[in-house]
Amino acid sequence: MKRRLKALLFFVVALAVWEALFRAKLWSPVLVPSPFSVGRYLYEAALDGTLWDATVVTLRRLALGYVSGIVLGLPLGLLTARFRAVRDTLGLVALGLQTLPSVCWVPLALLWFGQTETAMFFVVVMGTIWSMIIATDNGVHNVPPIYARAARTMGSSGLDVWLRVMLPASLPFIVSGMKQGWAFAWRSLMAAEIYVTILSGFGLGNLLHYGRELNAMEQVIGIMFVIILIGLLADKILFSPWERFLHRRWGTEQ
């Protein structure tokens, strides 16, 4: 409780400092709006539905692309770990493309797919899949060989070893790959939404972009808060349960 109180106090003070800076009129209110006007924007946007609609559009794009990236990346990662030929080819491609900031896929996606949902989907998948392949491959290579040996002596072989030993044993790596994939996908989607208008739906990135066009700083800052909030929630909802599971089983909790 004391911790929460301290945290609350910190944010109240931060907001007060912000409001004080606004009132001191050191900068034009167009550049530094009051926290209250940001709050009012968020309240009104939530009330008339724009905020909600944009969040749904963005999260749908993200979920679709992210889940596809993981579902494709995991088996491909297992294949690169299992077969040297796949590792020498696809593994190398994955390593290379992972270093490419995923926003760099946007121009290509626009030329290929036009201003469509497919372009957005493609960008998010590209953000996710390479991290996933590399993390899975890495995870398998870090499994102590004794696990597979022990499993073989107990009558496990072939696919059974992969499903019941290699896959669960690589979980710590796979989860951190999922986390990294999420971070890349989220960033690249935001960049893509700011960069291009997709007529089939305005996402949070679009709102951010129009905030700039309209010189509406309270909108820009408000939407940034929403984006941060989604990032925090994703971490808590998507990854915390996995991490708790890993800590409990592997005993890695401090």
Partner: peptide, 19 residues
């Protein structure tokens, strides 16, 4: 090859941490 009629105990316990 390996078989259930011959079980092995290693120097490391080789237990699976996820179970």
């Amino acid at each position: 090859g390996p078989g259930r009629d011959r079980m092995v105990m290693f120097q490391e316990p080789a237990l699976f941490p996820w179970l």
